[in-house]
Design a protein around this nucleic acid. Structure first.
Length: 748
DNA sequence: TGCCAGTAAAG
DNA sequence: CTGCCTACTGGCA
């Protein structure tokens, strides 16, 4: 039978991969396909023979045969033995046994996710329409009806059931918290009188609605594990899955890890089988890019959507690289696992200098243009062929300057040598990283273009999708420098930043030659001005810089006025990353101010935003000066409200991310007090999770009374007026000091 | 006043 | 699938 279907979900089950398609009529279609997982063994033939004998004796492998594959580093084809585990269930045993053979044989393609490996091998991607050939529940053949990197796609309408909590997620379901179910624009609150009743009610809704998507808040961590547990306890069915077979469901607990210099917490996952469960509060990409973004990354990353939803940008870009490697017959090395070892201070200092920074002058400036390189690092990687296997490659010989004299000057650098470092780049092969990046860069440009031309609704969807791609591009650069990344290499990372500095410096010189004054420059942006400059002139400048550097330079905008802030520790010194201003079209751009941080109380954030919004109306020095009385009045209003008291606690909540476990705090900081308070109430938080609390009156009282942690704020009557006034003054000072000089008037 | 622990921003 | 550098605050000696 031939039909059409939109690839919706897939997962391994027993010996096969189960695939769910949505038909044009909106029906869910379940199909199975045989898919053997293939591991490759390389190295000395005698060793490999020994390993195969053992595996045969243990009965873990169904078959093996000689094969060939490309070695990443050399690009050469090498002989290997392909082996197929008997079932997916044998994979974990096989992996851990092979893992112990380090140094004896080389093991490739061993640690891939089964669903993802299936998609890479079959060259398929989710969230796409396919022509299907089907027989008795088996998938015989399929062909995509759309391109993987298509600018436009049309998903079928999906039925959605909402699931959330009625109160703060720290309050457990059934212990003060209730469940809310949303279906067809109506929300129903289910009180938890008895657990069985609740399970029955949820089961009834799932059966009745049979939703394609369950979109939840806190479903992964708080709702689904409890419901599942209760359903097992009471032997009641809970049809979370469409899969009729037996699926195993384990709740593993979340994971805390260190990324970009800070602690992150990723909650445990509670995916469904044959149905999507997306927890909005446990999905980086949903937050950044909504459902269209999730579909986009599932397609590009060739991951089941529920996995893509919970993945970090790093996992996504790695998946794209893995897919590329499988398609190109490159043997995939086992992931380097060295999780305990952090870089030492010495390692950090060597080599990597990062982005180039010029310090701005402090104060207020009028008519300043900002120029930004678009996607500078990814473009550099793609244009200059930067990849782990292309830096100082073996194949291009060492005669052409490798290790020799450094590239002098900053003119157009020799085609295959890296500025500053003397590294040499491969000319024969295009690297894995550039090959992965190129189509992403191209699609992102297409999406940005489409967003500019489309109506507001379609534009929002294009924008979400391009935003998802942005994060993958950014992370791709970071991963080059990460020692444990599968496709990382520190020299490649250094080369990217070296090219980056070179290009920014080139841009600065071009600006100066054209008679512009360069006020400030930061990694991939420039702030410049010239008496009587025109937009047309700036566009020409951008074109010249783009042509010379090979990276697109675009005019971010012309500021009517712009403020660079001084350091608070040393007011004579500027800070590179804190500024705000208003463009000619009246939009504000604010960086590094209090309102851009995630920790300040809503009241303080709103106060600063109110002042900024007021200032945005001014265009000239005169207008700016004329606004001062209004700003003073505004700020006095906020002070007044604080002093009067009676501000709801929610307005005063400070939000911080836990950096360590409660026991690890050496100092009684407010954050430490808050976690302890929660622990006393039986709520334990892990590093990377957020704590929220209000500062109370009486700083000198017992430590327990200095703060009150959320969610126990409902009966809180007092707050530390001095603390909040102080914070408010700081928010005002960031604006007043630079715009009007130090004098703030009022009682400031 | 200087130092340290703790926390967060922009790119 | 765990990539920094720098600015800043608050508490303590």
């Amino acid at each position: 039978m031939e039909t059409r279907g939109w690839l919706f979900d897939l997962y391994p089950l027993g010996n096969r991969v189960v695939l769910w398609f949505i038909t044009p009529e909106g029906r869910a279609l379940r199909l199975e396909e045989d898919f053997p997982y293939t591991i490759y063994l390389g190295g000395a033939a005698s060793r490999v023979r020994q390993v195969l004998q053992t595996l045969r004796a243990r009965g873990w492998v169904s078959r093996y045969y000689p094969s060939r594959g490309l070695e990443l580093a050399s690009g050469k084809e090498i002989p290997v033995v392909a082996l197929e585990p008997k079932t997916y269930g044998h994979l974990s045993r096989l992996r851990s046994w092979l893992g112990k053979l380090q140094g004896q044989v080389e093991v490739f393609n061993a640690d891939l996710d089964v669903s993802a490996y299936y998609l890479y091998r079959r060259d398929l991607w989710p969230c796409t329409w396919y022509d299907l050939e089907v027989q008795e529940g088996r998938l015989l053949a399929l062909a995509p009806r759309e391109e993987q990197f298509a600018r436009d796609f049309d998903p079928p309408p999906l039925t959605t059931l909402g699931l959330s909590l009625t109160r703060d997620p720290l309050i457990p379901l059934g212990a003060g918290n209730s469940l809310a179910i949303t279906w067809e624009d109506r929300t129903l609150e289910l009180e938890v009188r008895d657990r069985t009743g609740l399970v029955k009610e949820v089961a009834r809704w799932l059966k009745k609605a049979n939703p394609d998507l369950v979109l939840s808040d806190w479903g992964d961590e708080e709702i689904v594990p409890l419901l599942w547990h209760w359903s097992k306890e009471s032997h009641l069915p809970l049809p979370l899955d469409r899969e009729p077979g037996v699926v195993s469901r384990k709740f593993s607990g979340g994971r805390t890890y260190f990324s970009y210099g800070r602690i992150v917490y990723q909650g445990q996952a509670a995916p469904f089988f044959g149905r999507w469960h997306v927890d909005r509060k446990n999905s980086f990409f949903f937050r950044e890019a909504d459902l269209p973004g999730l579909m986009q990354i599932a397609r590009l990353g060739q991951l089941p959507l529920q996995q893509a939803a919970r993945a970090s940008p790093g996992t996504l870009i790695t998946s794209m690289q893995l897919a590329r490697a499988v398609k190109d017959s490159i043997l995939i090395p086992w992931r380097k696992a060295d999780p305990e070892r952090f870089k030492s201070a010495g390692e950090l200092l060597t080599g990597d200098k990062g982005g180039l920074v010029f310090m701005p002058p402090i104060g207020l400036f009028f008519e300043v243009a900002e120029l930004d390189f678009s996607s500078m690092y990814p473009t550099i990687m793609s244009r200059h062929n930067l990849s782990p296997e292309t830096v100082n490659c073996r194949c291009c010989g060492e005669a052409e300057g490798y290790g020799g004299e450094r590239a002098e000057g900053r003119g157009p650098s020799p085609h295959n040598s890296v500025p500053e470092t003397g590294y040499r780049l491969c000319r024969r092969r295009e690297g894995l990283v550039p090959r992965t990046l190129k189509p992403i860069l191209k699609l992102r440009e297409a999406l940005k273009g489409a967003a500019r031309e489309a109506g507001p609704e379609a534009a929002a969807r294009y924008h979400q999708r391009q935003n998802a791609l942005k994060w993958m591009l950014v992370t791709c650069f970071g991963y080059l420098g990460y020692k444990n990344a599968r496709f990382g290499r520190i020299e490649a990372h250094e080369a990217v930043t070296a090219f980056g500095r070179d290009k920014l410096l080139t841009a600065k010189e071009i600006c100066e030659t054209a008679g512009f004054q360069v006020l400030h420059a930061l990694t991939d942006c420039l702030w410049i001005k010239k008496e009587g400059m025109t937009e047309a002139e700036l566009q020409v400048l951008c074109q010249e810089i783009s042509a010379v550097t090979g990276v697109r330079m675009a005019l971010e905008g012309v500021y009517r006025w712009l403020v660079f802030l001084p350091s608070r520790q040393n007011p004579a010194r500027p800070v590179a990353t804190r500024y705000f201003g208003v463009f000619r079209d009246g939009t504000l751009k604010v960086r590094g101010l209090l309102c851009r941080r995630r920790d300040p109380p809503p009241l303080v954030r709103r106060a600063q935003e109110a002042l900024l919004t007021c200032l945005a109306a001014a265009a000239t020095p005169e207008e700016l000066a004329a606004l001062k009385p209004e700003l003073l009045k505004l700020s006095e209003g906020f002070r007044q409200r604080l002093r009067e008291g009676g501000i709801p606690p929610g307005e005063l909540v400070v939000t911080r991310v836990l950096s360590r476990t409660p026991a690890e705090f050496k100092v009684d900081t407010a954050t430490a007090l808050a976690v302890r308070q929660l622990a006393q109430a039986g709520i334990s938080l892990r590093p990377g999770e957020k704590v929220r609390y209000v500062h109370r009156e009486g700083k000198n009282g017992a430590p327990e009374c200095r703060i009150r942690a959320a969610p126990f704020l409902e009966d809180l009557e007092d707050y530390d007026t001095r603390f909040y006034l102080n914070l408010l003054e700081r928010a005002f000072a960031e604006i007043f000091t630079a715009v009007y000089g130090n004098h703030q008037g009022g009682n400031g």
